[in-house]
């Protein structure tokens, strides 16, 4: 069964003073994958400007734009209509010795290495070693996700965009971004290639067609145990038709929905709103 979802992702910056010049990149357009088909997508920027669209290293759709007129507010709206489905199950047959193979590790070097958001940590490495010793890779990966859900409680606003996996873990709480980062830390520590996914999650499994729900930007992970598998550590389920995938990377830094620099202001106040409508 598949869903058709319309996503409307609005980021609104309000600045304390006029901004004279601003350069930004938005990653708010969903990807087309084997499990997901983008039917329509557009990005609108106010003040009005003409974005330049390109695909980045990770294959994400980027809209880059600059604004050269004084403005007190910046609104970036990504609209898309996506057909989603439950991914077909792939192989989970990889063994530890396959995963430990030097060539395989080299192929996946960048999604095994530590990053700013997913730093190497000895305590996590110990836990990972225990999980690894007791399980085959696929089971260990699931155990790692369960471990994350056990360690973190979901507390909105408990962490910031720069919070690392280790910091969130020490705090015992976080949001989807932190759940994903901590899962990556555990998976990578076990030697399982793992990557960060950003996107949207439709909040209601029983939503009626045409009903618009307020959703949120969401994050989950994909790991490799013979094939790539997606799992959502925040809700604890595999990815389904309610997930809309926007971008993949090593961590949040590779997929941030909006990033940029501006001159003036100075600081801005950001409001993000994601509206999701099930169309079918």
């Amino acid at each position: 069964m598949s869903w058709r979802i319309r996503a409307e992702h609005t980021s609104r910056y309000r600045y304390a003073g006029p901004v004279y010049s601003s350069y930004n990149e938005a990653r708010v357009t969903p990807l087309t994958t084997t499990a997901q088909l983008v039917l329509d997508a557009s990005v609108k920027v106010e003040p009005s400007t003409r974005p330049y669209r390109y695909l980045d290293y990770w294959g994400s759709v980027v809209h880059a734009f600059d604004i050269q007129q004084p403005h007190g507010e910046l609104v970036v709206t990504g609209r898309s209509v996506v057909e989603t489905s439950v991914p077909r199950p792939g192989s989970t047959a990889a063994t530890w010795s396959q995963l430990d193979d030097a060539l395989l590790r080299d192929d996946h070097a960048e999604v095994l290495a530590a990053t700013a958001w997913v730093p190497a940590d000895e305590r996590i490495a110990e836990i990972a070693a225990e999980l690894r010793a007791a399980n085959d890779p696929e089971t260990a990966a699931r155990a790692a996700v369960a471990w994350v859900r056990d360690q973190l409680s979901y507390v909105s606003g408990s962490t910031g965009v720069h919070t690392s996996a280790v910091e969130a873990w020490e705090g015992g709480a976080g949001v989807c971004q932190d759940f994903a980062h901590l899962a990556l830390a555990a998976l990578r520590a076990m030697g399982i290639p793992a990557r960060y996914c950003s996107g949207y999650l439709h909040p209601n499994a029983d939503a009626g067609v045409g009903m618009t729900m307020e959703g949120e930007s969401h994050a989950w992970v994909e790991y490799w145990t013979g094939d790539w598998h997606a799992v959502d550590p925040t809700i604890g389920w595999p990815i389904g038709e309610r997930h809309v995938l926007v971008a993949r990377g090593r961590d949040y830094g590779d997929v941030a929905p909006l990033k940029g620099v501006f001159h003036g202001g100075p600081t801005g106040d950001l409001q993000v709103k994601v509206n999701l409508t099930r169309l079918g």
């Binding site: 930004n24 990053t115 700013a116 720069h162 830094g253 940029g260 620099v261 501006f262 202001g265």
Partner: peptide, 17 residues
């Protein structure tokens, strides 16, 4: 010279590399 203010997360280089 203009001083730029960053929006969104720090970028690649901000990583402790």
């Amino acid at each position: 010279s203009v001083e730029w203010v960053s929006e969104g997360p720090g970028i690649e280089v901000a990583a402790a590399d």
